[in-house]
Design a protein around this nucleic acid. Structure first.
Lengths: 243, 243
DNA sequence: CGAATAGTGTCTCTCAGACAGTATGAA
DNA sequence: TTCATACTGTCTGAGAGACACTATTCG
């Protein structure tokens, strides 16, 4: 407490020269990611099997410590973790919340900033650079598996934010491939929101909001072929009334 | 890097016994508060004049380091800071965002979790326990004063979240005293949202949402006396359409 | 033709917006 | 009576919800 007792310094420069960042005890700081995608109309979260202590062997969210030398912001930490687990560079990424308390990590007082990401489906290699096993877990499996730290709660936090936000913005587009049909779009929104939608209203609103661009192609499955569209949105869009 | 290289440990317990939290370089971690109130129909933010380095003499948001011994969560840190600057124990408090990067604090890589609070007006004592000067600053003064660290940006972040959230929830009630008239309520919403509202619609919606309880008292100023109301809300309320 | 899926027409009901009109106090 | 502010009545238009209807493919 003596070194940083800065009443004695005459200038900011002098103070900073003497400053020792290690003097105050500080918590562990991590960034965790809840990466969502849709695989065959099923919502999935990316999970990692921990290969080292603590919580070795358990499922956990991708994430970890900030690298003070290479990361210049926590957002960058999040993007780095996401890139090396999925190979994706520019997903939809949003900060959910920061959870900090003394009981969530057995190593001591710990703070984590939770992000969620939304991606079109990508195949994950199965193992990342540390040899941890990486896989897409469905929400049903999230419910029944035990998880490291408070990660199950983190997933629920992110899931809630996701449902909510999908219902009044256009972020739902981010789980789809470049080209999609309006039925696929609606289905995606329904799953993300966990809420059925009326076909006519949905289409009316997408058109009114001018969010999609019709293409000269069709997608043929069973039944009448469906027109293909692509997302138009430049800016994130907010609906005046929720869906 | 040798001590925490945990491949060598046989059990979680053994690992934790050997774990040294100081081995990884970690960022500075703080909590900052943007405490809003309304004084005579003017939006104010609580500011502190820093009495010590760094940024000595500049205006800053109340906040500071987590006390790992006495705080059991970051929310508690926020409440503690709020209590000792304002004397208020249970305000409306919401986490806005966590900002972390290597340039925001001259001492080095720094992470802050920003909260905003909403209070009915309270007189602040003028100086808090560290002898820092504490005062309510109007938003116009926020614009023209220079501030410590990135605190001006933090205020703008919090201000934006506030406007937004007021427009689709009932949090605006928290800046009013226990008893208030509907005109006062509407005025408060208008200032917080920075957006005029239609009188009839506003009243219709408050009634429809069942958010207020009429009292048997009136408030007499100029003109016709107005009925006094009190807030009914038990749960936070979300409007289906924004105001 | 029927099954399956895409896409439209249109009625109804809710509710925000606008704004004029009425009520009740003080000077 | 005038003014200031509180409060209400009521018309209009936008748009969500419901749901039946038509369209286009495959077998």
């Amino acid at each position: 407490m003596t070194l940083n007792n800065n009443m004695n310094y005459k200038s900011e420069k002098e103070f900073l020269n003497q400053y020792d960042a290690k003097e105050f005890e500080s918590p562990l700081v991590t960034v965790d990611l809840c990466i969502f995608t849709l695989i065959e109309n099923d919502l999935k979260v990316l999970m990692v099997k921990r290969s080292s202590f603590p919580e070795k062997g358990k499922l956990a969210l991708p994430g970890g410590f900030i690298d003070l030398n290479s990361d210049s912001s926590i957002e960058e930490t999040a993007l780095r973790k996401l890139l090396n687990k999925t190979g994706v560079k520019s997903p939809y990424l949003e900060q959910v919340s920061t959870i900090g308390n003394k009981s969530r990590d057995p190593r001591g007082w710990s703070v984590t900033t939770l992000y969620f990401a939304l991606l079109p489906y990508v195949d994950v290699i199965g193992a990342n650079e540390f040899g941890d096993e990486v896989k897409w877990l469905s929400m049903e499996d999230v419910a029944i598996n035990s998880m490291a730290f408070d990660h199950k709660e983190l997933i629920h936090l992110a899931r809630k934010r996701l449902s909510n936000k999908v219902s009044y913005t256009d972020i739902g587009f981010h789980v789809l491939p470049q080209k999609f049909t309006l039925s696929q779009l609606q289905k995606a929104f329904e799953i993300l929101m966990d809420h059925k939608l009326e076909k006519k209203s949905f289409r009316r609103r997408m058109m009114a909001a001018d969010l999609v661009q019709e293409l000269d192609e069709v997608s043929a499955e069973r039944g009448r072929p469906a027109a293909l569209y692509q997302a138009k949105s430049k800016q994130p869009y907010f609906f005046a009334r929720s869906l």
